[in-house]
Design a protein around this nucleic acid. Sequence first.
DNA 1: CCCTGTGAATAGTTTCACAGCA
DNA 2: TGCTGTGAAACTATTCACAGGG
Lengths: 257, 257
Amino acid sequence: MATGRTHRPATRSRGIPEATVARLPLYLRALTALSERSVPTVSSEELAAAAGVNSAKLRKDFSYLGSYGTRGVGYDVEYLVYQISRELGLTQDWPVVIVGIGNLGAALANYGGFASRGFRVAALIDADPAMTGRQVAGIAVQHSDGLEKIISDNGVSIGVITTPPGVAQQVCDRLVAAGVTSILNFAPTVLSVPDGVDVRKVDLSIELQILAFHEQRKAGEEAAAGTDGGAPAVAARGESASADKGPDGDVPAVMPA
Amino acid sequence: MATGRTHRPATRSRGIPEATVARLPLYLRALTALSERSVPTVSSEELAAAAGVNSAKLRKDFSYLGSYGTRGVGYDVEYLVYQISRELGLTQDWPVVIVGIGNLGAALANYGGFASRGFRVAALIDADPAMTGRQVAGIAVQHSDGLEKIISDNGVSIGVITTPPGVAQQVCDRLVAAGVTSILNFAPTVLSVPDGVDVRKVDLSIELQILAFHEQRKAGEEAAAGTDGGAPAVAARGESASADKGPDGDVPAVMPA
DNA sequence: CCCTGTGAATAGTTTCACAGCA
DNA sequence: TGCTGTGAAACTATTCACAGGG
C-alpha cells in the first residue's frame, strides 16, 4: 500500500491544508448566494455565519489563499468568488462520467449543483442494456461497453461510481485504465487504485451510523429521564452512562482522508 | 456556536475520538464481510487492509473500545462485530424518516445498507400531493402534513432531509420541533438547529469540488519539471495575487489504498 | 475604531516503536 | 514467536489574541 516513499522536501509555498480545501466549497456556496443578492462585501464574521463555521477559522483558511480582504471592511464578494473558484479549479470545464444509473446515479445526473460549478455530465453509463438509450436528465444513457471510448473522446478525468458494490472495483479499474485520475465512489466498497489516482467516497450508511452513535449517547445521558416508550434502553453489560461529546454544529462534509 | 459544554472531562473513561467513531462503520463493514465468509479471526494488518486504513491506526482505534484482541492471534470476528455494533448503537432499532422523495430520497429508501444495520425506514414523506400514496421501496409515501404525527407515533429520532434546499430549513425546524434530534442533511444548505441536535451533511458537489482541486494540481504538475529549488521564505508571505498556480510538490492521494 | 491577517497556544490525530502477553 | 495494546513523538487542525492597516 501507500509505500512511504517520497519524502516531500516539505516545499510548501502553495500548500493549502486539506481541511481548508474541504471548506472552500462551503465558502464558495455562501459567497455565491451573497453574490446573487448583489451584496458587495462581507465580513469574516458574516460569511462565517453563512457558511456555518467560525470566523477565526475562515480567516485562517483565507490566509492560505492570499490576502484578499480589506482591513476594516471585509472581503469583496465577487473577487473572492473568483479567487476561490480558481483555486478549486472551477474556472475550467470538468467533464464527468457517471457509471451506474440507478436512483442514485439519476439523482446525481439531475443535481443542479454540478452544472452550476464547473462540472458537466459528459456521459451516463450503465451495464444494463435495458437502460441504454433511455434519457436521464436529458442525457441518453450509454452502454458500458463503450466506456473507454467515451472517456477518451471526452477527455474525462473525473468519474463517479454509483454501481452496486459488487462491480465497483472492476468499473474503477476500467475507468483508471482509460485515463480517469479522480474517482468519487458511492458504492460501499474500498476501492484500490494505483498511485496518483484520487478516490473520495461518500457512504450513506456510514453517516447514519455516526449519527446513531451520538444519538445513543444522548439517550444514555438523560439517565433518569423517563422518556417515551419509543426508545428501548438496551442494557448490555456494565454500561457506562457518562457520555460526553461536544455537540457541534459544524462537522465538515464526509471525511477527509 | 460552540456554547454547550466548556470542555469534556477529557480524561480516560469513555471518550472515543470523533475520528475513530467515523471509522468504526468502516471496520464494521469489513468485519461483516469476513463474518459472511465465516472467517473466525483476523489480524489488525488484514482487517486494516480490508478497511483501507493502516494497521497502527486500527489498533489505536480499537484500543479506545477496550482490549478485544488476543496477542499473537488477532481479533475474533464475531465478537468484534458485536462490540462495534453495540458501541455504535446498532444493536437497537432506529426508525428513520426520509423527507423529500425525489431521486435521492428514493435511492436512500432503496439502499440496502440501512436495513442491514439497525436502521428501519419508518416513513417516506413528501410535500407533493402527487407523490402521496405512491409506493417507493415498498413503502407508501405520506404527505408532509402528517409529519409531526408520524414522528411521534414511530418514536423517530433520526431524520433524513432530501428536499430541495429552499425548504430544507423549514423541514428541519418541523422535524426538530417534533422530537428529532439527529439529522442527516443532503440539501445544500447550512441548517441551524438548537443545541443538542446533531446535523451531519452530505454534499455531493463539495466532494466533486475537492476532487477538482487535486485534479488541477496533478495537471499543473508536469510543468514543475525544474526541481523546486530552495524553499522560498517559509512564511508564504509575499507572492500575492496573479500568477496562475505555481504548483509544486505532489499532493498525496486522498486515500492510500 | 473596525476588521483582517497571523504568530502562538492549544487541541486533536496519526504514526512510530516497542513492551508484554498468548 | 507473532501480534496486540499503548506511551511518546510527530504532525495537522483549531482557536486565541493581538498587531497593524484602512
